Each structure stands twice: as structure tokens, then as C-alpha cells.
Computed example of a mutant assay.
Amino acid sequence: MLSADKELMLFPALSAVMLVLVTVAFALPIFLTENAAGMLEGVGSYVVAFLFYLVSYFVIFFCNSALVGAAMIRLRGGDPTVADGFRIAGSKVGTIFGYALIAATVGMVLRALQERAGFIGKIIIGLIGMAWNLATFLVVPVLVTEDVSPVDAVKRSMALLKKTWGEQVIGGFSLGAITGLATFLLILVFVPMIILAVSAGSPVLIGLVIGGFVLSLLLLSLVNATLSGIYTAALYRYAAEGDVSQGFEAGMVEGAFRPKD
């Protein structure tokens, strides 16, 4: 799919650029304000953090919705464009914002609890966060495909996971593991090259090698993010429609999650 629709990588790329802009937009006023320390204390810190979470989550979910929407068109035999993805996400902008509001609230609550918890409490809250991430795994394709509210999208995601893979599940097939291996291989390739460049004493060569390493990592990150969106769309189709999408082996979707031991 990615080889047929390389433009799908534009969605995570745009998401990353927008997140940088959001971070700058929040950081600059704070650093340029004389009373910046006061803004980041007490209730003010939570207000700023919540707004940052809300805007960041909205950007992420909007671009992910565009990616998944375009991927769904391809999985159903169509030929999507970038405009198709943004059109789909734009038609769901209110629902996406509502889900971003829910996610930001959950994130803030977990953060506040973690700041006050001890060592064991932090572990428990971390597990709760993992459970939330699992329960909402299919929320974006649900929002894109079905006409439901943000709360119902969370419920629907949980119901699809339970119906398809069981009540108590953990991750099975992982794109993250593949990306981790690819990152390790990049390190094996570029670290000796960097050492050789430093030994040669050429600033230009050092810059080129380091630049190539950074660009390779960025490209790998974009590919991983795009494949994750495509994979999520395929898992939704399998869970909601019982269809193993073309190009996917049955084991990739059936083994996406497995029962807890």
C-alpha cells in the first residue's frame, strides 16, 4: 500500500511540522513573559499543560484521521489522494476535537496522579495508561468510518477489541519492534561512518554523514507512522467487517493482539 500511495507519508510529516509550530506557539509567550515562572506554577501550569495537550492531540488525531481515511479508500479498492484524506478528516472535525478533549483530560488526570504517587503508584498509573491506549486503539478508524460520538467511539473501540480478540489481551504483532530493529541497523551502519569521518578530520564529511543519519531516522519515523495508520485501518476492517485486507496475511491481523497469560 505504501509503495502504491507514497503520498500517505505527507500526513505524519504535516502532523510533525504542526506539532513543532504548536510547541513554539506555546513556548514563546511563556519565555517572553516576565512572570513566566508564575504562569508555570499551581493552577496556571495545569491550564497551560491542558491547552497544550488539547491542541497537540487535535493535530495528531486530525492528521491520523486523514491518513486512516485515505488508507480505508485504498483497502476497499479505491485510489485515494491527499485531498481525500483531509476531506474525510474535515467532515469529522467536531468529533475529532471532542475525542481530543477526552484524551487531553485523561492525560492530565494521569499526569496529576503520577506526580503525587509513590513508586508503586507510578507503576499502577503507568499500567492504567497502557490499558487506556489499548482500549482506544481503534478509536480513529471508528471516528472516520462510523457516525458516532467521541464517547461512543471509545466504547466501540473497546467492544471491537473484546469481540475480535477477547476480554483480556495484550499487543501481539508489533510494527514498533520492526522499527526498533531498523533503527539498530541504521546505528550499526552510520556509527562506523561517523567515526571514520571524525578520524579523517573533515568537517564537511562529518556534517554529511551526521546529516544522512538524521535524515534516515526521520524517514524511518515517517514510514513507521504511515504504516501504523495503514495497519490500524486494516485491523479495524478485520474487527468490524471480518475482512482481511488485500496485501495483509491473516496472521498479521489475527495475531495483532493475544490473550494475557
Rank of each mutant, 00 (worst) to 15 (best):
F173Q: 10
L181S: 02
S174T: 09
A131T: 00
L127I: 13
V17C: 05
A135Q: 11
S221C: 01
F190W: 15
M1F: 12
A250N: 00
S15I: 10
G166S: 04
L32P: 00
F248A: 10
A36H: 09
L127P: 00
F11E: 04
V223K: 04
A131K: 05
W132K: 00
S91Q: 14
T183N: 03
A250Y: 12
L218F: 13
D152S: 15
D147L: 13
A4I: 08
A104V: 03
L8M: 15
V214E: 07
L143P: 06
Q246D: 13
E241S: 09
F62Y: 15
I178N: 05
W132D: 07
I102V: 14
L219W: 12
V93T: 15
L143C: 10
V154F: 04
F58Y: 14
L208G: 01
L215V: 14
G126T: 12
L217Y: 09
Y231E: 08
K163R: 15
V148W: 06
I120P: 00
A239T: 10
T145I: 08
V68S: 06
A100L: 04
I128F: 06
L220N: 10
E115H: 12
E167C: 02
G166Y: 03
L75Y: 05
S91E: 12
V151D: 05
G126Q: 13
A27S: 15
K6I: 12
G212N: 02
V169I: 15
L218K: 00
G212W: 00
L227V: 11
I125P: 08
A182Y: 06
F184P: 09
G44T: 01
K92F: 08
V59R: 07
A71R: 03
Y99M: 12
V17A: 15
L160F: 02
A103P: 03
G42K: 12
G247L: 03
G129V: 07
V204Y: 04
G118I: 00
N64T: 12
V244W: 07
Y99T: 05
I187F: 13
M9Y: 13
L32T: 00
P12D: 09
T183M: 10
A153Y: 04
L222R: 05
A233G: 13
V151N: 02
V22Y: 09
A4M: 02
F31Q: 13
M108T: 15
L75K: 06
V209T: 07
I178R: 14
V139H: 06
L186N: 05
E167M: 10
F257I: 03
A89Y: 09
A200L: 03
V140Y: 01
L143H: 06
A89E: 07
S199P: 08
G201I: 02
R111C: 04
E146D: 15
A177D: 13
L143F: 01
G121V: 11
T33K: 06
Y57M: 10
F11A: 14
F58V: 11
P203S: 14
G229E: 05
M158F: 11
I187M: 09
E41F: 06
E34S: 15
I96C: 07
F257S: 00
V244K: 06
I73D: 08
A100I: 01
A89I: 14
S174V: 05
M9H: 14
L110I: 10
K163Y: 07
D147H: 02
V109C: 05
F26I: 09
D147T: 13
V214W: 10
N64C: 07
I210T: 08
F11T: 11
K122D: 01
L181P: 01
L175D: 06
L220P: 01
L220A: 08
V47H: 03
